[in-house]
Design a protein around this nucleic acid. Structure first.
Lengths: 219, 219
DNA sequence: CTAATAGTGTCTCTGAGACACTATCTA
DNA sequence: TAGATAGTGTCTCAGAGACACTATTAG
């Protein structure tokens, strides 16, 4: 029998939209290596849990969260990715609506916070590579699935939906064309309610028809 | 420090086309569990190699191969996937042209052979799940990249190219529409040569313009 | 000249994108 | 009634798919 001295970990790329910007959760490292730098929340995989369970457990250590979407991204295995020893990390993407996530109190150890993707500092380990890959996957998936629902509140306005697309794809979209396209896909339906309380015309509230991830050619 | 007793392995889903059929390489297991059943070629990840290197090394243990395309598929981690102990397996997809792969002599131990995807027997472990996922990925990737080149000889006819699409997507395609579409993508070019030796009109030979994987909206 | 596959063009329909005005609410 | 955002329709162009015949070779 072979012996292996390899540690298996999970890294989470947790996306949400705050202030109309796509943001990712980072902790601040308080020990070497990469002390003081930002890093993705990570954790060891325990013997009695799957990778997905490990990712979910890790997620809950840093945040209070509900209605989260979790998807395996890729496994990273560069020999030197952690200078302390051989490590293989399975990265996960998490998508959450702003309303459904709460970052746990900044114990001095972790100090977790969301940072906009266009303002990322230099990151620890190979986390920049992971983040880049995660963004690419998210963009792609937005275009052929109903994944947008996981980053939105259950009930949302058409404008909010469009904003998800604009912020993730990082480009402005035409209001009329966007609505036409979404309408034809039948992935959302009106709730009959309206968003009140603003000093302008109230917007209709919508919800997604299918609460599971669905492949739909979109955009 | 945590101790982990988890073995990390790689499983290879090796695709090629033989007799106009999409086929995958399997070995026959000669020990329990799943003795006598078909399984994907697999191997342990060594401490001084990346996952991709492990997949490639394993590939070379079962076959002589050149010009192979290798891509990480997904990591499988069901607690009970191997009854002998905790195991996490990173699956890889390999694509090879029939001409570029040779299955090593059937030592009684392994007896490796290609089996058409529509005639798979019951497979060992969770390999059915892996295979299904691999086929799905391959189909999808065929539609938006130039990945077909890796399953074709360097020079090929338009008919052969169309056959790759038909066999992988498992549907007949219209000759004229297919040619029009491929033409417009500028991903292949005529070599000027023709395929001779047949008792009918000789077909022009083509080759791919870009030898690297390229994202191109296709079909 | 027969058998077998290579290779080509047109029409219709649908989806994508460009583009500007009216509707509805609060203060 | 001013300010602010919600919500809507038309035209043009490009790509997708349906469809049938001619071209070229070996024997």
């Amino acid at each position: 029998m072979i012996t292996q001295d390899i540690f298996v970990t999970v890294d989470n790329v947790i996306f949400t939209i705050i202030n109309d910007k796509l943001q990712i959760l980072f902790i601040k490292r308080w020990i070497e290596p990469y002390k003081e730098m930002r890093a993705l929340p990570w954790g060891f995989v325990l013997e009695e849990e799957t990778l997905e369970e490990a990712a979910y457990r890790e997620l809950e250590e840093e945040t209070s969260v509900k209605n989260v979407y979790l998807e395996q991204l890729y496994s990273f295995s560069d020999i030197k990715r952690d200078p302390r020893g051989r490590n293989i990390s399975v990265a996960y993407i998490a998508l959450v609506a702003r309303e459904h996530i709460f970052v746990k109190g900044g114990s001095d150890a972790s100090e977790a916070k969301f940072i906009p993707v266009d303002k990322l500092p230099k990151l620890a380990f190979d986390h920049r590579k992971i983040v880049d890959y995660a963004i690419k996957r998210l963009k792609r998936k937005l275009e052929y699935t109903n994944i947008a629902q996981y980053i939105l509140p259950t009930k949302f306005t058409f404008t909010q939906l469009q904003n998800v697309y604009e912020v993730v794809l990082n480009q402005k979209l035409d209001v009329r064309n966007f609505r036409k396209k979404i309408d034809k896909l039948w992935i959302i339906k009106a709730t009959g309610e309206k968003e009140m309380g603003n000093q302008y015309r109230p917007a209709k509230l919508f919800q997604f028809v299918n609460k599971d991830l669905e492949i739909v050619e979109i955009l």
